[in-house]
Amino acid sequence: MLPARLLAPLAAAAALALSACATTPYTGPVEVTRFVAPSPAGLGQGTIAITFPDEVKNENARSAFATAVSGELARLGYSVVAEGTPAGQVAAIRTTRSPIAAAPVRERGPVSVGVGGQTGGFGSGLGMGVGINLGGGREGANTMTELSVRIGQTDGATLWEGRAQLPTGVKSPYSQVDASARTLATGLFKDFPGGNGETVTIDVKKLQGR
């Protein structure tokens, strides 16, 4: 049996080796682009109903984004009514989640394991590509989650349209559907209606607690 004075350095070295294998979760900023109609009469007031033009098979995702967007619309001053209920305006919600292609692995670099590879949204039912870096260090962006909302009048005229996207790594807490829905919706409607055609980048930490 080794003396205690020799065991301590060995234990420290083992702990250091294990920490080197760990990765820091990656969460990118939210990128938001918005467009405002030249005469957006009634924007931010009156009744509004949400709708999903595309089928969303993932009920948890559908519920999370409906709740997040409805909450932001209510905060802006809208009276949000149930989906399918007649309203003065309609908010059409679309959301997707797609894999981000991993960078090529350098010779003698970290081992990269790819799983899946299909591009799929929340409603597509397809798998998602997952790249796992076994070499330690900082985790890279793995998936891109996107939320777009179009606010229009019942006659089809568009008053406002915006898109927000958030890149995250596998281990990021923001890769969870509830967190990504809240963060994207908050970023999308921050400083509403925003500049026409303007793209802004927002750190996710600035969107917490709103």
Rank of each mutant, 00 (worst) to 15 (best):
R108I: 14
T168Y: 00
A17Y: 06
V69C: 00
A74K: 05
S172V: 01
L43N: 00
D178R: 14
G137W: 08
L207C: 05
T96K: 10
A181N: 03
T33H: 12
V111Y: 10
G131L: 15
V30E: 03
T23D: 13
G140D: 15
A185R: 00
T24R: 02
N142S: 14
R210K: 11
L76W: 02
T119Y: 05
T51Q: 13
P3E: 02
I48W: 02
L18S: 13
Q45S: 08
N142A: 11
F35G: 08
P25W: 15
A64V: 07
A15Y: 08
T95I: 07
L73A: 11
T199P: 04
G156R: 05
I48C: 04
P53N: 06
Q153P: 04
P3R: 09
A102N: 04
G129N: 12
T168M: 00
A20K: 05
L2G: 00
G127I: 09
A49L: 04
W160N: 01
V105H: 11
L188S: 11
L166K: 00
G114L: 15
F189A: 04
N60V: 13
F35E: 03
R62P: 08
A102V: 01
S63C: 13
V69K: 06
R106A: 14
T95M: 11
R138E: 07
C21S: 10
V36F: 05
T51F: 05
F192Y: 14
R210S: 14
T51I: 08
T27G: 09
V105N: 09
P99G: 07
A91V: 03
G84E: 07
V204Q: 01
R138K: 04
T67N: 04
D155E: 13
A22S: 14
R62D: 06
S124Q: 01
N58F: 11
Q45E: 07
I151T: 13
S124D: 08
G197N: 04
A87K: 00
A15T: 05
G169H: 09
A15F: 11
A185W: 03
A66S: 08
G77A: 07
T143K: 10
G194E: 05
L159W: 01
R5C: 13
M1H: 01
V81A: 01
N196G: 07
G162M: 03
A13I: 02
A64R: 06
S19Q: 09
F122S: 10
A87Q: 02
T27M: 04
A101I: 10
T51H: 06
G28F: 03
A101T: 12
P86G: 14
V204G: 03
F189Q: 01
T96S: 14
G109I: 09
T168V: 02
G137C: 10
G197I: 03
G140W: 14
Q89T: 02
L134M: 14
G135P: 14
K205P: 01
A12Y: 11
G121V: 06
V177H: 13
G84N: 13
L76M: 06
G169E: 11
A157T: 11
G156P: 12
S79V: 13
G131H: 15
A11W: 06
N133M: 12
F189K: 00
L147F: 11
E72T: 02
G28P: 01
G123L: 06
P86E: 15
R138Q: 02
Q176F: 12
T24P: 02
P104K: 15
A92F: 06
G136W: 12
G129T: 12
L207H: 03
G131A: 14
Q89Y: 07
A164D: 09
A68R: 04
A64K: 03
